[in-house]
């Protein structure tokens, strides 16, 4: 299943935690023209560098679908960063 929600949180010293939740599907729909162009560019690059385009797309899609559950949470000194994909 493709990611549904991306959560990004940043806390800087002496500031409160800022957390942004990004719904992935609406953003992908919004950026679909750009993504389509990127897809075409990727296919052309695949042909130029002799890369199996279908396999590359399949692998890319598998990676995107495997992203949910990823979490990166780090705090160094008084700065904290959180990235979570659901």
């Amino acid at each position: 299943m493709m990611p549904q929600l991306l959560t990004v949180g940043v806390k800087r010293p002496d500031r409160r935690l800022v957390r942004v939740r990004v719904p992935v599907v609406p953003v992908v729909l919004l950026l679909s023209p750009v993504l389509l162009l990127a897809l075409v560019a990727g296919v052309v690059a695949g042909h130029v560098y002799h890369v199996d385009t279908l396999r590359a797309l399949r692998t890319g899609w598998r990676i995107v679908c495997a992203l949910p559950g990823t979490r990166f949470d780090a705090q160094f000194d008084r700065t904290a960063v959180l990235v979570a994909i659901r």
């Binding site: 890369v51 692998t59 990676i63 495997a66 990166f72 705090q75």
Partner: peptide
Amino acid sequence: EGEADRLNVRVPLQLLRAGVQLAALVP
């Protein structure tokens, strides 16, 4: 120095499995 430095990373193994497929795509 003050608070503890922490790192907590969780990576789905499925992502690693998908990632290794990239090796086959290198020209």
